[in-house]
Write a protein that binds this DNA or RNA. Structure first.
Lengths: 110, 110
DNA sequence: TAGTTATATGCGCATATACGCATACAGTTG
DNA sequence: CAACTGTATGCGTATATGCGCATATAACTA
């Protein structure tokens, strides 16, 4: 497929999407959600962050349409809302793995 | 497909890679290099940035192994050094397109 | 209604980084 | 050697944003 040359405005949007993915805590949240939807309390435990910080990052991810939000009584459940995330991480990991073969074992999950 | 769960250290590296791609000016540089390698002066013209700023961003991209550097006399030529960039942008663009298409439908009374 | 639980948010601080300016460095030419 | 060209870099500033603390909001329960 031929690469389409994007406009400057499109590049701004792409950059913003990449920025959302450029925070380790948000990636940890996405990782925690790979297995399916979870409520905030569970995500706080899994990521080891504070409740306030986790809530903020969940907001950022939801605003970017990477997560979907479901309210159930007192709890709020989040789940991955954009399956392209999986392929994105696959691509980046593959590239990084090739890049420093010395650190490659990190990406193979031991 | 079964996603591999990455370690926290791996996620930090992935986040760093995304951060490199999270700047519009760096994406403009990558876009300018889609057609092949170019020297700094040409990239300054194509992107409309200052020479100092362009040089810095080229450094960042090269450090991340996304570009390769070739010196020829006074000039320095840069070229895309990681083909996964193409697929990355394709993925993100596809995702953003869907998102905006969905948004557009709202205004069409869908 | 009052109290409890789960989640979200206002605020301030600290840090990271993009940018512009000036200048340094490297390589070529006189 | 000096002068010139192309590229890189030190420095200061402005802005963005991640984090912690405290508190607010929402929904359930006695």
């Amino acid at each position: 497929m031929k690469p389409v040359l994007l406009s400057d405005e499109a590049l701004e949007l792409v950059a913003r999407r990449f920025a959302v993915l450029a925070e380790p805590m948000r990636l940890r949240l996405l990782r925690a959600l790979f297995g399916g939807e979870k409520n905030v309390h569970t995500l706080v435990e899994l990521t080891g962050g504070t409740q306030a910080n986790v809530s903020r990052h969940l907001q950022t991810l939801t605003d970017a349409h990477l997560l979907r939000r479901r309210k159930a009584g007192l709890e709020v459940f989040y789940a991955i809302g954009d399956p392209s995330i999986f392929k994105l991480c696959e691509l980046v990991c593959g590239s990084l793995e090739k890049e420093h073969a010395a650190k490659a074992e990190v990406f193979r999950g031991e």
